[in-house]
Design a protein around this nucleic acid. Structure first.
Length: 444
RNA sequence: GUGGCCAUAGUUUAAUGGUAGAACAGCGGAUUGUGGCUCCGCUAGUCUGGGUUCAAUUCCCAGUGGCUACCCCA
């Protein structure tokens, strides 16, 4: 039997390495025991609050065709050009590990004809994303995002609803972050602005002062010139034409309406004319949730999003207005109030302790019985000393310990110990289940 | 991708060119069946590969990884 098994292993790993096991891949992260409560807290909270607002949970594949991202995110964006994990499938098709969520969601919207659902369609999406950039605080090559999207709503109410939801979520999580808002205009007015902007920076006296990064930006992504933190560039940006002055009338109205609604709802925001998003598909309203940082020049973004009215059409769907928002899980976890997580944790009900073989057998049965009755039961049947069992019970923060030894087994009884007060009483073994159910119902 | 800092038990760290010390955690024990406090014991470590040297965990180089500031982004 072992022979066969060895052969199998050899087939899988022809040249078995002899050294230490391979290490974790750069930029990847394990979620270790004890870390999950915080993740679950975020997910459950997001799920609950989003559902109340009519968002429905969806998922899309991790693997998509490379061209999806090439077409949607912009051929010049860093995400597509430098950071995507892509490879050639055996079929010859180039595939990619999704670097962002929106294109896949939009693809699904088009492919399954979600425009036939009652509009607007509101979706909640959660999953891992892959970008091969240099790891840093709150940045991993595999990271998790929560995405909220609204399809089919052209009016300012769509982004207002998203921002309101974000506001509620941050509140629920005890995260005091700032919401930045800006408008990027639309296909009609933005080109005019960019022209003006480029013209301004191309003037010789201005161009000569630009930092090397900004010279690249001038060609690649002129909007980014505005938020460079180099002193010289910053000074130049002061005198540069402002996007807001170039917005066409509909865009201006749209922005004003968004801000008006937010004011009415009492949501704090920061109108930030420098805010520019890195992806090509955004138009009109863009927003970011940022956390000011003492060490970095730039605040850490916990999330970002905006309107993308042309994306669906450009991916082959019928023209559909849409907007969306993404929150980075790892970054949220950096600031999540641990107290909120702790409070959300429910303590286990019972720890079953046993002494000796007979009692151990009995407690195995009892364990099943209590578990089926819906109680959270812990045990350590492999441990022998009562001391170590109770120590474990203590660490698990259980409410009650049930102790059964030889004596109890003979008497048909069991000891109930209240782990908080330390008081103990003898119970009839036959009635444990009903007594425990009653007690735990009372404390709830 | 560019720059800076760093690399010792699971974690936080100490020390030395000559057999690595602690704290926390883990496990066990302090008269036989009682947790949280205390005390004691045990387990466990110099990232990898080269070089210098009688001798390297220590010095040098490279790699890898981490942190961090940029770029970019969640």
């Amino acid at each position: 039997m072992t022979k066969k098994h060895d052969k199998l292993v050899d087939l899988v790993t022809p040249s078995r390495p002899t050294g230490p096991i391979a290490h974790r891949v750069k930029g990847m992260k394990d979620i270790q025991p004890g870390a999950y409560p915080a993740w679950e807290f975020l997910l459950q909270s997001a799920g609950r609050l989003a559902r109340l607002r009519g968002f429905e949970r969806i998922d899309t594949p991790v693997l998509e065709s490379y061209s999806l991202y090439e077409r949607s995110s912009g051929r010049t964006s860093d995400i597509v050009t430098k950071e995507m994990y892509s490879f050639l499938d055996k079929s010859g098709e180039r595939l990619a590990l999704r670097p962002e969520a929106t294109p896949g969601i939009v693809r699904a919207y088009i492919e399954h004809g979600w425009f036939n659902l009652p509009q607007p369609v509101k979706t909640l999406w959660y999953g891992p994303l892959f970008r091969r950039d240099k790891p840093q605080l709150g940045r991993y090559r595999q990271h998790y995002q929560l995405n909220f999207d609204i399809f089919g709503e052209p009016g300012p109410l769509a982004e207002v609803e998203l921002i309101f939801l974000i506001h509620e979520l941050l509140n629920d999580w005890g995260i005091e972050a700032q919401i930045d808002i800006n408008s990027l205009g639309c296909v009609d007015c933005r080109p005019n602005y960019i022209n003006e902007l480029v013209k301004y920076y191309k003037e010789k006296k201005h161009r000569e002062q630009l930092c090397p990064d900004c010279r690249k930006r001038l060609i690649k992504n002129p909007l980014r010139l505005l938020d460079c933190k180099e002193p010289a560039c910053e000074a130049l940006a002061q005198g540069a034409p402002q996007l807001i002055d170039f917005l066409c009338e509909p865009c201006k109205q749209h922005l004003v309406k968004v801000l008006e609604f937010l004011d009415n709802l009492g949501i704090q925001y920061n109108l930030n004319s420098q805010l520019v998003r890195g992806l090509d598909y955004y138009n009109r309203t863009v927003f970011e949730v940022v956390m000011p940082s003492e060490s970095a020049q730039r605040p850490l973004a916990l999330g970002g999003g905006g309107r993308y009215d042309q994306l669906i059409e450009s991916l082959g769907g019928r023209p559909t207005p849409a907007c969306g928002f993404a929150l980075g899980m790892e970054r949220l976890l950096l600031y999540l109030d641990p107290h909120k997580v702790e409070v959300s944790q429910t303590r286990p009900d019972v720890f079953l302790a046993q002494l000796g073989d007979g009692p151990r057998l009995k407690s195995l049965q009892l364990f099943e019985e209590l578990r089926q009755a819906g109680l959270t039961v812990h045990q350590a049947f492999t441990k022998n000393s009562l001391k170590s069992q109770l120590a474990l019970a203590n660490q698990l923060k259980v409410k009650y310990a049930l102790i059964i030894g030889q004596k109890e087994l003979l008497d048909g009884t069991i000891l109930l110990r209240d782990m908080e007060s330390g008081s103990q009483e003898v119970l009839d073994l036959k009635r444990v289940k009903s007594i425990m159910l009653k007690r735990l119902a009372k404390t709830k």
